[in-house]
Design a protein around this nucleic acid. Sequence first.
DNA 1: TATGAATGAGTGTTCATTCAT
DNA 2: CATGAATGAACACTCATTCAT
Lengths: 208, 208, 208, 208
Amino acid sequence: MIVKSEPPITGRGRRTRTALVRAGREAFEEHPYDNVRVDDVCTRAGVSHGTFYTYFGSKEALFREVAEAVVGEMFAASVVGPAVPGDPYARVEAANRLYLRAWAGNSRLMRMLEQAAMDDESFRGLLLELREMFVRRGADGLRRLQEEGLADPALDPRLTAVMLGGMVEHFAHVWLDLGESCDEKTAVDMLTTLWTRAIRLEEGQVPR
Amino acid sequence: MIVKSEPPITGRGRRTRTALVRAGREAFEEHPYDNVRVDDVCTRAGVSHGTFYTYFGSKEALFREVAEAVVGEMFAASVVGPAVPGDPYARVEAANRLYLRAWAGNSRLMRMLEQAAMDDESFRGLLLELREMFVRRGADGLRRLQEEGLADPALDPRLTAVMLGGMVEHFAHVWLDLGESCDEKTAVDMLTTLWTRAIRLEEGQVPR
Amino acid sequence: MIVKSEPPITGRGRRTRTALVRAGREAFEEHPYDNVRVDDVCTRAGVSHGTFYTYFGSKEALFREVAEAVVGEMFAASVVGPAVPGDPYARVEAANRLYLRAWAGNSRLMRMLEQAAMDDESFRGLLLELREMFVRRGADGLRRLQEEGLADPALDPRLTAVMLGGMVEHFAHVWLDLGESCDEKTAVDMLTTLWTRAIRLEEGQVPR
Amino acid sequence: MIVKSEPPITGRGRRTRTALVRAGREAFEEHPYDNVRVDDVCTRAGVSHGTFYTYFGSKEALFREVAEAVVGEMFAASVVGPAVPGDPYARVEAANRLYLRAWAGNSRLMRMLEQAAMDDESFRGLLLELREMFVRRGADGLRRLQEEGLADPALDPRLTAVMLGGMVEHFAHVWLDLGESCDEKTAVDMLTTLWTRAIRLEEGQVPR
DNA sequence: TATGAATGAGTGTTCATTCAT
DNA sequence: CATGAATGAACACTCATTCAT
């Protein structure tokens, strides 16, 4: 009946909105969804309570926006640069580093998204979409290695990607959220070692 | 460690209490902590609203009890039977199967516990205790293999256990909660294959 | 998902509920819907804010209940006793008195209902149902008089009932809500006089 | 009586103001006072939110202006042209037609005004003023007919006018707002018939 | 003068927890 | 011990109004 007008377009407006998103992101990183107060977010963003609703229809809407931003960043971050020709180990290593950083940088928020996905179909969709992208990316990489004769062709690419990708993802969580102490280099080396051995691609190996 | 509220030691009382714990467990498996209503739990347990507080001082107390029960079960479940002498692959496989089942059976609840751990030190302690146990179990197993000359002695046992253990744990989640379709045998085979290759212990290999 | 349990059945519960309905009725008689605070109603009923929601899902639900009660009473009130045989004027007079009292006693609330009906289909339905009943009652009465040769047979019974009935209804409003001073006897006499003349049934007239 | 806010006397200003009043009138016709949003009105008028307060100090101020305009129109509309000499039935009929049209054209708004009058003395004053005018007009007309020997001299002019006038007013509401289907001619004929019979002035009757 | 972003008091509603019976 | 009614703090959200640009 009553149509809400679209959000403002002014410079000020955009700045306020951005501030709210940033504040929301921080808040959702620190506390579970239900423990985040709209008021907190507003205080952080330096705006009044009412202003929040100029930009977001609800607390959930803000979370959705934050979640979508994070997912977007992870999509973007997961794009491996052009493969280093002739060095498959380095390729896997680069992918693992990227992968680890992507998950480590958004670990808390991704957990919140998983939480939200439990009771909300649309968040679940978002999450599964992201997962699928990562899985496909991993599986494609593996398939390529198999085709090049660099990895065990007997391995099912998807399942392998799910498992080894999960290892990286999970380690990011353990590392960042649960305080498993480890420097990044060690982590990446180790993950890459385990990964390459698992798929029978080992350091220094080259195509025949 | 587990402090119970005083009153009921009767048969009826114990039955009611058990019903509440079971109901709580179901509820917490289905919905995030904040979406679980005490009312809900009571209805499921077939007791009146007020009765809940005869047995539990708060909703959190119930969750704590459920969480502790689950953690206890996981502790128990993770005890690998006596090692099959002379077949290290089978030993790893058995451990993986056990591990996978333990996590798969309690996947949702463990997620809730992780969630709770975000904002509550004591839940965090519980979680870390459990993790530590699993990590130590895995690291010990690996160390034994290394000592027997069955696994790459260069690998850091703890970090390896964290990573490969995380792979299993994470797969349980992806498999059960996110609907990655796969039968158990395939999963265990695959996990074991990846694991043994990663540590350079391969099927059929025997001590020299 | 979560099924709300039915309202309580205890004596105390029923009493509380009744108190809330009574309080709500008073409140809605005094102020327009939006100016009635749930808190006001609770204070009047002597219960805490939260208790309200034990019995009613929303403020609207309370209003609905009050409205339905009022409509129910008006239905009941409009039942004219057995016609006084042989005195049609007295019959009309009795009907008018009843009619006037019914509307006068619920004047404010009926206005609120009309207000609510503007933006809500279900309230509109309730209102129209009630109107229809009154109209039909009036039309039937007139038709009977026509059949007995006591009233002008040329008059359309429904339209006549709508108009003359409306006169009574409207007078109740003017009288009670807008302070047109007049005692009941005078009002009933006058309304009956106008009504009977309009349909050509006049005092003292009897069937041939 | 009508206090306007200071600023705009420009052409543009006046146009904006007019647009707001028109928009407000539409809005108040469609929804109860509290359901009308200032935003709504602005959107309808095609002006920005802030502009509203250039012209009106508050939402109530706008409603007051709209209400006063309507009341003004009804005052104007109720002025019966010079009586047709020698045809009292036609005179009553003309009055009824005018009366019916006046109420029918402003039915919703008059209801809003009644609503507002419930909680606000000044609106109540406005409403009573208008009513009084109609009542007086009706009573005067009747008195004239009585003096001319055309209507029952025993009838109290004021009370009769209140009641029969109310019949017309109420019918306008039932007709337009509650969907009682009827064409204008039928309505006017019927109302006039009932009215003239009630006061004992019947079609065709002429002064002796 | 017009704009639209910002404000914040106000209100309905939820739900864990308490308590009289 | 069980019941279920009562409690009230907590919170999300609305919207009339203000004000800087």
